[in-house]
Design a protein around this nucleic acid. Structure first.
Lengths: 226, 226
DNA sequence: GACTCGTACATTGTATACACTATGGTGTCG
DNA sequence: CGACACCATAGTGTATACAATGTACGAGTC
């Protein structure tokens, strides 16, 4: 977890550092409201403050950290209200993505959903939550690619990560969420592959709304007061 | 347009610099696809490259500039496809904002729409496009405030600016667009004030869709091939 | 004459040093 | 004992210097 690793992943340190920190935040190793200092991060990953600052700007863009001018930076707090906000927006945008993905003619790439479904099944069997989420994210990326809408992809990118934090938390409380999410995801993939845009959109919106409600009580219990 | 002006506006140079550059891009003083070099901007505004880099990250977040690692930065190109993308997303998100704004109980702030409508009327009379857009943006901000959804506001913030570029361009081609936009805007404000959420949402979505189609031919003529 | 290789330059990427601001503790005075 | 002022310190904000990289141009070769 040092400079060498970062540089090997790709050319740009800020982007890679941001990815690493994203993971730390999503999977709870960096906790909600935890204070982050630039120097601490810089030292920890063996880089200077310059790329760290840029990485933090990227995290700020995606709502994963909160910055107060000249005061500091904190991991963005999780709250019931924020959860509702994220899911309110996600419903519409994921619906759009599914709709336009279904309209795509790229049957070859649509075929990739089959492999993803198998991987999801596998992850479920092994009860490997992180692997499940990773494959699920790849499914989302495939959907966005098919939708062929950079703007939509950009917006959803800034929602997915925050949503994943809640999903991972909910999973830790109640692993059954994974199973529910799995069934839904499989059905959405099918709809997109079938090319029925209206159905894909409707299904996606309803299924995300359903998960939202199912997760909500657990989230309220954990973060309702915050 | 130097350091002093920037510092007086507020404490943070990157944010202010980003705002200034945003305006330059929206109103076409910095043209589509124009190359931007950090040093040029730094020199022009009398600051060093550090805050310039951060400002450019902010612009990148909102889709106003495109960055290619180690190659450089360009003003994001306008194109028919991008225009469609922005408006596809805007319809849904602005609809959501209108819906939740209508649901707000803050009658006092809702009253502010009246003043804005007067200012819009005034701007139309004087044929002052820039003033119109500025007031219109304030109306959007008021809507977002009422909607009380930080996530939605964050997403819409990254759409509005790009949308404004197209709107300003369309206005320059055909000033009547302003009149159309005015009628629509006034009706939306009324709906929000009335508190009819479903109507506000529906109206907003349909009216934005209508403007979208009305603008589309002009945009195609200008950027269709790009 | 066209194509490839190499070198110089322009520009981004990163590190480091310095400046400024916010915060917490301590001391003094009312 | 409490409140206010002052100072020390930590951490962000900005400037500058240096490193790395991509591009353009020209020389050399086939």
């Amino acid at each position: 977890m040092n400079l060498v690793r970062i540089q090997k992943l790709s050319i740009s340190i800020p982007e890679n550092l941001a990815e690493i920190l994203e993971e730390e935040i999503i999977y709870g190793r960096l906790k909600s409201r935890e204070r982050l200092t630039e120097e601490m991060i810089a030292e920890r990953y063996g880089v200077s403050r310059s790329p760290v600052r840029e990485a933090l700007r990227l995290l700020e863009r995606d709502g994963l950290v909160i910055r107060e001018a000249r005061r500091g930076i904190w991991v963005a707090p999780l709250s019931l209200k924020d959860f509702d906000e994220v899911y309110t927006c996600r419903i519409e945008l994921e619906g759009l993505a599914a709709k336009y993905a279904a309209l795509s003619n790229d049957t070859e790439r649509k075929g990739e959903f089959s492999g993803l479904q198998n991987e999801l099944t596998d992850a479920i069997k092994r009860n490997d939550a992180k692997q499940f989420f990773l494959v699920d994210v790849r499914g989302s990326l495939l959907t966005y690619t098919l939708a062929d809408n950079k703007t939509l992809t950009r917006l959803l990118g800034g929602l997915e990560k925050q949503a994943l934090r809640y999903r991972f938390h909910a999973y830790q409380q109640n692993p059954n969420i994974l199973q529910l999410s799995f069934d839904d995801t499989a059905r959405i993939y099918d709809a997109i592959r079938d090319g029925d845009a209206a159905k894909a959109q409707d299904l996606t919106e309803n299924l995300i709304r359903e998960i939202w409600q199912k997760m909500r009580e657990g989230i309220r219990g954990s973060f309702g007061a915050e």
